[in-house]
Write a protein that binds this DNA or RNA. Structure first.
Lengths: 317, 317
DNA sequence: ATTATATATGTAAGTACTTACGTAATAAGG
DNA sequence: CCTTATTACGTAAGTACTTACATATATAAT
């Protein structure tokens, strides 16, 4: 009769939401039963401010695991209802400090017995299932924090995804992908420096024309990763600007890109590849090491002097 | 750190919703990972139509436990996306029969492996908690169907609520309450007949002026119930038109109203009360019996000939 | 002291639904 | 057969949030 129940684990999400909504609706009906003028969505904010006040909007958003616009909207409503008042923080005039008004405190006091009743009835309900749902929920939340469903599914299918990743050459139409893929990891770990900006804004001029090349990883028609090989003076070839978009990291796209780049270099008769990376990029370093790259002990005169701390590696082909 | 977690049973609803939303978001990301153009909210409809087709909008709404506007909106979207087509039912031209298009069926086929993966990963996640969450959820849903939180809290506090219910006399301003309270149960169990309409539209003329009275039950300033006593020819007094609004049923408001009515009749020196009710109204009959009312075996010439089947009762004061 | 960057907040619009209400077609009752 | 429900569906607006974006202030870096 009820498809969502029949679907089991596949529709767990819908079922959890549905149950949660039912419980919230019941709570609202209980407020109505006792003629307390109170909306369910005010609960978290009222409770939080009753415990700990004053608090800023963002601070509350963090505490209540909501977005700051949510807090902003609810706080405006509650202020209109006379339940709280906000004052600018004199030490930081950006901040709006929220605290309960007397009316808000009184409301809290009249709600407390209802909250006890709701909590007690909920505990009773849960107890009927014979399982400590709260702790089960806690465990699931922790497991999910540790590794969410997306990551689990990706991990299980990484080889399958990898098999379907194709490596293609640079075309002018792909310039924007070269730029955005690299900006993604640069923004994540470093500041973008003029040298980065130069290469990203005109890869044809700064990579391909001097005798290098650029590769892209494509999956299901989507460009998901890239890498470049730059030619320096003295026939030095540098592996650089490798990036894989976040959602596809861990699917061996970087490995496939590097492998193809090295293959191309071998075909070109190149005998040695160098690269510059950073200690921060641990997965990258591991990847390079797996291809046989070793950290340079001697000087690397080809290396660009980025502000970010770098290490250089090289591999004899 | 996280207030919602700290609050335990009181914030169970929020937590369940939050977890459900997280799982749904992950599912969407997985569709994106495999470049399937599919929105999470389409899932239920697509799945249902793949299993069983064609189906009407309302039929699907029942099956998926959603409202029919939800199905309507999603179906319009999915039709735009070419995933389903709708045809008017030739036997009932109100009905729009939905079925998957070839594109929809193909999409289903390409989604099936993803659904397996999602289900497997979810099962794995749940298994880590060491508890069969699905069956726990089922039990909780059943418990809730049996008696929801609202009813539990109301039951626990019925005496407390009852103590605060006051009985007040008719005032012209309360006419609309007399009408709506009675319409509530009449609509629920019967058709409203001309006799009902007459009394409800002008209680002053048809109840009070002939020598009867009307009482109201008030809780926290809200009118939650009513009853009337009509005087018939030959000093016959009839208890009638008793109704308590749904949310407050089970809090002894009817008992209090009846008790007060009988008390007033005794004060008036009345020796016998009669009433007319229906087999359908089991709680009402029980209530009357608890006051000593007995089913009439002989004729009740005062009784109005409602179309609905009635039984008459009487009590010697 | 400037300039750049980050932070705290506000605002608009979107999302996945819901409730409330309106309309056309069918079924039921007289 | 005609009137009156009832049913199936559609539409509009509301809800409890979210994301995306704008703005003012504060802090850090030069």
């Amino acid at each position: 009769m009820d498809l969502i129940k029949e679907l089991g684990a596949l529709a767990l999400a819908t079922r959890l939401k549905r149950l949660g909504e039912k419980l919230q609706k019941d709570a609202s009906r209980i407020y109505g039963l006792f003629s307390v003028e109170f909306e369910g969505k005010w609960f978290a904010l009222l409770y939080a401010l009753n415990e700990h006040s004053p608090m800023g909007v963002t601070e509350l958003a963090d505490y209540l695991q909501l977005t700051h616009p949510a807090i902003n909207q609810v706080s405006v409503e509650m202020e209109k209802a006379g339940l709280l008042k906000s004052t600018a923080n004199p030490r930081d005039r950006r901040q709006r400090l929220l605290q309960l008004s007397d009316k808000g405190k009184n409301l809290c006091r009249s709600l407390e017995p209802l909250w006890s009743e709701i909590a007690a009835a909920t505990e009773e309900l849960v107890a009927e299932s014979g399982v400590d749902l709260l702790s089960v929920l806690g465990k699931i939340e922790d497991s999910l924090d540790n590794e969410d469903i997306f990551t689990r599914v990706k991990k299980k299918n990484r080889s399958l995804i990898c098999d379907k990743i194709g490596i293609i050459d640079y075309k002018p139409g792909l310039k924007k992908h070269f730029e955005s893929l690299n900006r993604e990891w640069l923004d994540e770990y470093f500041d973008i420096e003029p040298e980065d900006e130069k290469v990203l804004s005109d890869p044809n001029r700064h990579v391909i024309k001097p005798g290098g090349f650029i590769l892209f990883a494509r999956f299901n028609g989507k460009i998901i990763g890239t890498t470049a090989v730059k030619k320096h003076e003295g026939d030095i070839y540098e592996l650089t600007k490798m990036g894989v978009t976040r959602e596809y990291r861990g699917c061996y796209a970087g490995r496939k890109l590097t492998s193809k780049a090295l293959e191309k270099l071998r075909e070109m008769g190149v005998k040695k590849v160098v690269l510059q990376t950073s200690k921060k990029l641990k997965t990258a370093i591991k990847l390079y090491e797996s291809f046989g790259f070793k950290r340079d002990t001697c000087d690397a005169p080809w290396a660009y002097g980025y502000s970010r701390e770098t290490i250089t590696m090289s591999l004899d082909l």
